[in-house]
Design a binder for these strands. Sequence first.
DNA 1: ACGCATTTTCGGAATGATTCCTAATTAGAT
DNA 2: ATCTAATTAGGAATCATTCCGAAAATGCGT
Lengths: 149, 149
Amino acid sequence: MRHSTGQKDRESRLLRQLREKGYKLTSQRLAIIHLLAGDTSHPSASDVLKRARKRVPKISMSTVYYALDMLKREGLIRELEFYEKENRYDINISDHINLVCRKCGKIEDFMGEVPLSPTEVEGKTGFRPEGMRFEFYGYCRACKNRGKR
Amino acid sequence: MRHSTGQKDRESRLLRQLREKGYKLTSQRLAIIHLLAGDTSHPSASDVLKRARKRVPKISMSTVYYALDMLKREGLIRELEFYEKENRYDINISDHINLVCRKCGKIEDFMGEVPLSPTEVEGKTGFRPEGMRFEFYGYCRACKNRGKR
DNA sequence: ACGCATTTTCGGAATGATTCCTAATTAGAT
DNA sequence: ATCTAATTAGGAATCATTCCGAAAATGCGT
Ligand SMILES: [Mn+2]
Ligand SMILES: [Mn+2]
Ligand SMILES: [Zn+2]
Ligand SMILES: [Zn+2]
């Protein structure tokens, strides 16, 4: 295993990388990084705002977007874009499949290899992949057990 | 093979299905369906508007959205949603992988089985998939051969 | 500890694709 | 030809995100 995935370890790794790049570690950023490091729920920007305000009550939405943008430019988080809903932010930056519940909106990770490699795609098509987005839409275990709609 | 994929066949199949459901076939809709049936480029709503105006010069954007919405509700096209760009419309409604070029915006189909079945996902996780979205982002053959950015 | 340059914050305005609204038009049935 | 429900068109509204400018804060050098 390359990295521990504990919240504390992930948090200090993020902070170290930002410090190395010369970013200022404000209380707003510390709060955002702290909550993201321990969150596998793929939160939206407004989720992040709500939780960050528990530690830094006056933090603004602009600041949340500015911090999320920095983190994604540095490759430390991934943004999952949706048109009809808010975008979501994923602390898991590896190529993986997300399972998106159509009822409750929960997004969970599907563990396991993505069963098609970029190399294979390029060999067959000439298209050179640099990123991927694999999602299933449906009903999570909880939602499917209480009538799907 | 189940269906022919020729433009003419696809077009008459779409028209038949809409007639059966009682939809009115206006000149605006005929133009939109005609162009979609022969288009594998995954056009945006404004692409559709531009091309539809060649046959029906006064067609409005509202009408294009209304028609696209009808087609997707009937399961005859698929909408690919993007946050930072316009949504795109796919006449290929089967589960398949799309290759999205980051330089020119072209979207092409990757032919071949999607290498992971909904059944397998449900067996491993309890999540019940009903739809999927599999995309690779990168550079199409033309764009990768002229400096990627 | 102090001052400084630069970055960051924050509130509000702007953006833009899509959706909503309403009145006028039209397809298709009788 | 008439009628009615569906469709069209243009404009307003929506809303998450981005942009803007001024005020505040960080962290470095001294
Ligand atoms: Mn994930
Ligand atoms: Mn496609
Ligand atoms: Zn659910
Ligand atoms: Zn290209």
